[in-house]
Simulated scan of single mutants.
Amino acid sequence: MGSKHAVDLGLHTCTYKRWQLSGIPCVHAICAIKFKKQKATLYYDDYLMPSSYLESYNPIIYPIAREDDWEPVDYPIAPPPFKVQPGRPKMKRHKEPGEKEKAPPPPAPKEGKLPKTGIKMSCKICGQQGHNKLDCPVTKAKKAAATVSS
């Protein structure tokens, strides 16, 4: 069922190519190593060994000094020159973190005026919903009668 791959333990290669890519022996190499009754850790790449890991972190990296320990500077430090970015400028400004509070509620509607949201259209002539006075069947009938009589 499975495929066959050639393993060379001396060169650390396998035709499956996974061992060469990762540095860790593939399944086929592990079978060959177990057949030879050897340890698989002997065939890992050197960079995977704990000694290599500890050697890479051997030089001590000292933390940055606090602001009190900085040397004072005699010359003024200017910001970098301003460069106009391409594109249309933004109309809204970026708010500060403390400014991002909820906006105040909208003012209460004046007497006699209601907001248009959520209200269905209604005709002023017949009072039915779904059309206005321009599309009213009553006015259309009156116009049709006026054109027929004239």
Rank of each mutant, 00 (worst) to 15 (best):
P76N: 01
Y53S: 05
D45F: 04
E55N: 06
Y57T: 15
E71F: 07
R66L: 13
A78R: 05
N58G: 04
K36C: 05
D46C: 08
Y57M: 12
I33P: 00
K34E: 12
S52Q: 10
S51L: 08
P63T: 15
P80G: 08
D46L: 02
E67L: 04
P79R: 06
M49I: 10
Y75K: 09
S52W: 01
P72I: 04
I61H: 03
E71M: 13
D68G: 04
E55R: 00
R66W: 05
P50S: 06
A65Q: 10
K34L: 08
D46Y: 05
P72K: 05
P79E: 08
A40T: 14
A40G: 04
I64Q: 15
D68T: 05
P72W: 06
Q38G: 02
P59R: 10
I33A: 01
Y57S: 15
S51P: 00
T41N: 13
W70Y: 15
M49C: 14
F35A: 07
M49S: 14
P59K: 11
S51G: 01
K34R: 14
P50T: 05
P72Y: 07
L48I: 12
I77W: 00
K34P: 00
Y44S: 00
W70N: 13
S56C: 02
A65E: 11
A40D: 11
Y62D: 15
A65H: 06
Q38N: 09
F35E: 08
Y75W: 09
D74P: 06
S56A: 14
Y75E: 08
A65R: 09
Y57I: 15
P72D: 08
R66M: 11
I64H: 13
F35L: 03
P81W: 02
M49Y: 03
P81H: 05
A65I: 07
E67F: 01
S52Y: 06
Y53C: 03
Y62H: 15
Y53R: 05
D45H: 12
P81I: 12
L42C: 09
L42A: 10
Y43G: 06
A65T: 15
W70H: 12
A65G: 10
Y47K: 12
L54E: 07
N58R: 13
Y43F: 15
P50L: 13
P63C: 07
K39P: 07
S51K: 04
E71Y: 06
R66H: 10
P50D: 11
I77Y: 02
L54K: 03
T41V: 15
Y62F: 14
A40M: 10
D74A: 09
I77H: 02
P59L: 04
S51E: 15
P79G: 12
L48D: 11
K39G: 10
E71I: 12
I64T: 14
K37L: 09
I33L: 03
E67S: 08
I33M: 03
A65C: 08
D69H: 08
S56G: 01
A65S: 11
